[in-house]
Design a protein around this nucleic acid. Structure first.
Lengths: 368, 368
DNA sequence: TTGTAGGCGTTATCAC
DNA sequence: GTGATAACGCCTACAA
């Protein structure tokens, strides 16, 4: 970087199009046409164009986007309103994907957070519309059912990671949780597991899931569907109000201490799996060899555990991208209320062993 | 929520101030004064005010912020440009803090990511200035030295989590890493540790730190200062190019397998600690009882480990807040280039044991 | 106390 | 091919 100089001008006054035109000795209109690339169309001479471009160069002219927005009605800006970015760290990838997709289409993102406050949500949506955003993405940091706030209907919008409770014209973008469930189940089936399979995170008999969690319901449905097709049934499950390591630890301990044979655990997220690993170790068993573990989300910790945790990933980045794409494809009208499901990719590591793999060796528990 | 109705009007045309004024039977000026709360000042009658407010109510008028910005020159928007939000998940808290502070002052945040691309960075900063942002926060996701891009000097700006390589007028907001180092060292001293203390993440003899990492240098300096004051010296250290679990595992294994007594580890972040825990367990030792561990960052995983990992936290949220505060306090001028250091709070868990605590019992290694 | 008029920097419509 | 001129919606000096 060739910058031997001192710091240059601080906040020099901005140059306007009028000044550029004057400097180039043409009218503002001509300058405007050239700069918006409509020279050919308007049959403006190449010489004139050159003069204008030189003036732009010399003055360091940059168009005033605010003014342009006032005139054209669009600010080339998209509003992104989320409930919380805080508790689910990698949900930041949602924003990342949205940012990338937006930038590729020449848009910037106006971001705000509601922290779950419905009134604030309405307020923020309106504040953004006041700024002439082209549309609004209303994002939830974990997949859930939500009320579509009235304010959202005032213009183009998309629900990200959320489904409307009622019929609505607002489209949704969510991960394909049911398929993820099937995927996890198939993985176990392929490894030869047909019994001693437990779910950790939801109750199974009767079914009991954390309130409002789309993921819980759809994952379970997918799991049971894939197993059912092969005549396999879950041996049980443990409901957890929230999916954190401590709960996963306790639940897994409970399952392991029951009289039944435990061959595989389907943990409903990676944090639960962290607890499950600890409980398995405490019982003198080994993950994969004695107890297979499949998980969901694929947070970074999944790759830190040993053996590496096989997990069906939340496609945060892709979700973010998709939301912007859907929004920008929503020309004018509010959309069809279509639900777009994004595939959750399987990340295979080492936590699933073949059924029976550990049977020929004595379990460590026996050795104690 | 009382909403038995169907979805209401989609994107009704926006009402202007002129319409409100006409409807209220007053001039636009009067309406404008009332709505900007200058009724008293302009001595406008309460009746007139009421008429105007009613018209606003009836029409659902919302001011066009774009137009206002064009007129006033400020968009009540702050630009937040970061290098990556991706790799360091909890850095999202930086954004969260900034978002909160901005909203409290009636500002919205325009966010963008450079992914480390300097050209893109310049471009984004300029794009934001084109939108008349009040100022720009240039954020780095881990504390480092950075070049201040020229584009930043065109208006108010703040470096977040970064220090300028050269003298500059742009102020910085960074975590107080040196004090964090002292804090970690003091904690070990108070637990009675005076020897067998190793750092994991940086080399110590000769000193070797990951390129560009302010944290590495300042943490180490703080540690050595606090120890030096008590006549204590580090027994050694292991340099790591990046601070991930795998490296932490290998480094710790190396340290433990050396002939020397190992009593305490200062891991340079929590991921390194994850690896260290695994290596300690593999050696048949126990964290806290046999080997104390102190760490930095306080990522969520710190509380998931067992025993819970004591860590000096990166105050992401506070950093984000502070950056906005500093920026908004920067009236007009570019600022003094002052460096604001934010305290890193210590989160005490169970990974530090008293020196000698494990000595009366046989170490598990011996029992093998 | 209220109204008129000009301008912020663009874009777009029409004459020339 | 080019140049006045009028919006876009709001703010505010100044006039009444």
């Amino acid at each position: 970087m060739p910058d031997g100089e001192k710091e240059p001008r601080a906040a020099t006054r901005r140059v306007t199009l009028a000044e550029v035109a004057r400097r180039a000795g043409v009218s503002q209109t001509t300058a405007s046409f050239v700069l918006s690339g409509r020279r050919e169309e308007m049959r403006i001479s190449a010489q004139v164009e050159a003069k204008i471009l030189r003036a732009v160069e010399e003055t360091g002219y940059r168009p005033n986007v605010v003014s342009r927005s006032l005139r054209t009605g669009s600010s080339h800006t998209i509003g992104f309103v989320s409930d919380t970015v805080a508790t689910t760290p990698f949900a930041g990838h949602l924003i990342w994907g949205a940012l990338d997709a937006a930038r590729e289409q020449g848009r910037l993102l106006l971001i705000a957070e509601t922290e779950g406050d419905a009134e604030l949500e309405t307020q923020l949506v309106e504040t953004m519309r006041d700024r002439q955003v082209e549309g609004i993405v209303l994002a939830s940091m974990y997949t859930r059912w939500a009320n579509v706030p009235r304010a959202l209907l005032g213009g183009p919008s998309v629900l990200l990671n959320a489904l409307s409770k009622k019929e609505t014209s607002v489209p949704s973008v969510i991960p394909d949780e049911a398929e993820a469930g099937r995927c996890a189940a198939r993985l176990l089936l392929e490894a030869g597991h047909r019994e001693g399979i437990y779910v950790v995170g939801v109750g199974v008999d009767p079914v009991r899931t954390p309130k409002g969690s789309v993921a819980a319901c759809e994952r379970l449905a997918g799991i049971e569907e894939a197993f059912g097709r092969e005549g396999v049934r879950l041996s049980g499950g443990a409901f957890l109000g929230d999916w954190q390591p401590h709960g996963g630890y306790e639940a897994t301990r409970g399952i392991l201490s029951s009289r039944k044979q435990v061959r595989a655990l389907i943990c409903f997220n990676d944090r639960v799996s962290v607890g499950a690993y600890q409980a398995v170790a405490d019982a003198g068993l080994e993950v994969a060899r004695d107890v297979s573990v499949v998980s969901f989300d694929d947070e970074p910790v999944a790759s830190w555990l040993r053996p590496g945790l096989t997990s069906v990933a939340l496609p945060h980045y892709e979700l973010g991208r998709k939301a912007i794409e859907v929004l920008l494809a929503l020309d004018g009208a509010s959309g069809s209320g279509k639900v777009h499901r994004v595939e959750m990719p399987l990340r295979v590591r080492e936590s699933v062993g073949r059924s029976g793999a550990g049977l020929d060796r004595p379990a460590r528990r026996a050795a104690k």
